[in-house]
């Protein structure tokens, strides 16, 4: 049974369709990539999955249960973790407190139970040196790492990553790929929106291509990238 399933999900903003009858499923432990040009509706899709935006029609199933009407908090507790494309840190809380909040509320645990995990996550994401700095003082790249750390701390079964590799050096990107692989290897399913295709394709085993809110292709990364239709959409973007 898929851990996450979208069934004919649609959403429009006024006359502009952001998702049109989108259906796909994510198996437990799978790593799925989502690509598409800017404005294709990728981030909106994440917001529909997490409940930050409500669907117009269609269903979102998580672990076989219909969560279409569940608020974001319930979906987080069920096991959906997400990063925001534009980082949304808790500005006046420290980096550690940001992660601690996610760990305590996302797992319904006490501070003592999760502090160790939080420290470990901060080491994994390279933020431990900034643990006691208010998140509002971080650079953009550090904020993106914090997004990942906070999402990890909720103990997700499915981790939704929204463009976390942009702007990294090659070495940093390699380390990020290793980290995402390690998270995936521990059994967490990954759904990753990314424009940095070489990073994405070295982690995911399946790609979904979105354009104008529609799924126009699904399949193995190599086959997808070879397809003419996808190349046309990505014309001008280096593969």
């Amino acid at each position: 049974m898929p851990i996450l399933e979208l069934d004919q999900v649609s959403k429009s903003f006024g006359a502009v369709p952001a998702a049109e009858a989108v259906s796909f499923a994510v198996e437990p432990g799978e790593a799925l990539g989502i690509i598409g040009p800017n404005g294709a509706g990728k981030s909106t899709l994440f917001n529909l999955i997490t409940g930050n935006i409500g669907v117009d029609s269609g269903r979102v199933l998580f672990g076989g249960e219909d969560v279409t009407r569940a608020p974001p908090m319930r979906r987080c507790l069920a096991g959906i973790g997400r990063t925001f494309q534009i980082p949304q840190p808790f500005q006046r809380l420290t980096v550690f407190e940001n992660v601690l909040t996610a760990a305590m509320f996302g797992n319904r645990s006490s501070q003592a139970e999760v502090s160790g995990d939080c420290a470990r996550i901060l080491v994994d994401t390279g933020l431990v040196a900034h643990a006691n700095v208010p998140a509002g003082k971080l650079t953009l790249l550090q904020r993106k790492r914090l997004e990942l750390a906070r999402a990890l701390a909720t103990g997700p079964k499915v981790l939704l990553l929204d463009e976390i590799a942009g702007g990294l050096t090659e070495a940093e990107c390699g380390a990020l790929v290793d980290l995402v692989r390690a998270i995936n290897a521990r059994g967490t399913a990954i759904v990753w929106i990314e424009h940095v295709l070489h990073a994405l394709t070295s982690v995911v085993n399946r790609l979904v291509v979105l354009d104008f809110g529609r799924v126009i292709a699904t399949g193995e990364p190599a086959a997808i990238m070879a397809s003419r239709q996808v190349r046309e959409i990505y014309l001008g973007i280096e593969v």
Partner: peptide, 17 residues
Amino acid sequence: LGLAAVRDNQDAARSVG
């Protein structure tokens, strides 16, 4: 802690439970 998170960013707070 939850309250401080809500104050700083309600959307993000809801997304972490």
